[in-house]
Amino acid sequence: MTRAFRRHSILPGFGLAIGLTVFYLSLIVLIPLSAAFLKTFTMGWADFWETVTGARALASYRLSLGASLIAASLNSVLGLLAAWVLVRYEFPGKRIIDALVDLPFALPTAVAGITLTAMFAPNGWVGSWLEPLGIKVAFTSLGVVVALTFIGLPFVVRTVQPVLQELDPEMEEAAATLGANRWQSLKRVVFPELMPALLTGFALAFARAVGEYGSVIFISGNMPMKTEITPLLIVTKLSQYDYAGATALAVATLAMSFVLLLFINLLQWWSRTRYA
């Protein structure tokens, strides 16, 4: 440790840089976040527990976690497909489509929200096709899944794409030479290589979806117990000046996000050690 330190110490500014970093980090992120946690301690355990396990709160977790899980799974399948087509096949307009994959990441969530609602409303561009089939998307929990699938789209594509690009086609050729058919070589050679990236993409999409607000609240219709996501319930409590209630739900959500973050880091560590 000290030896490594000394080797780099010809470069100046460590004290200043680390000091500024920790100071700014504390000021903007750590102190405000701890204020939220401290607020819950003022409300007492019984109140806290009652708030975070209320019927309306439980229904909102079910929707937020359930829809996020479905959306992240959809993204894993469709994102893998999209990454595969973008890396392996040639077609006109490929570079533009490839660049547009970042759209859901860069497009403001409110814009995504009102646009998806306009598209999937019964008289919308997509909704009018689904209406005769009896499929209602806007203002149902299906709408929540659609919005979360949209915002999670780049995560799986962008984590899988580089791995797929690095993957040597010679390995698949070797598998074929050894008598494997296409499906076997995919299953035994390609998928094991892609698995860590796919898992990371899934976890990132899921984590993003759980906290998502802007793109969901327009398309979901926001009916309590039915199509109300947890972040919206927090905002509702805030607008009723129920600060303690909002904070309790926020802390419950933060705890879930923290577990997710830990899980993502573990996954990345696992994929690094396994495929280094």
């Binding site: 980090l25 976040l33 939220a36 927090i234 926020a250 959500t253 933060l254 996000s257």
Partner: peptide
């Protein structure tokens, strides 16, 4: 990990912490 924290916090909570402060 701490620097990445704002990415893993719901935007709603990011606003809420300042209201509480």
């Amino acid at each position: 990990t701490l620097i990445d924290l704002p990415f893993s916090v719901s935007p709603v909570i990011s606003g809420l912490v300042y209201v509480l402060l």
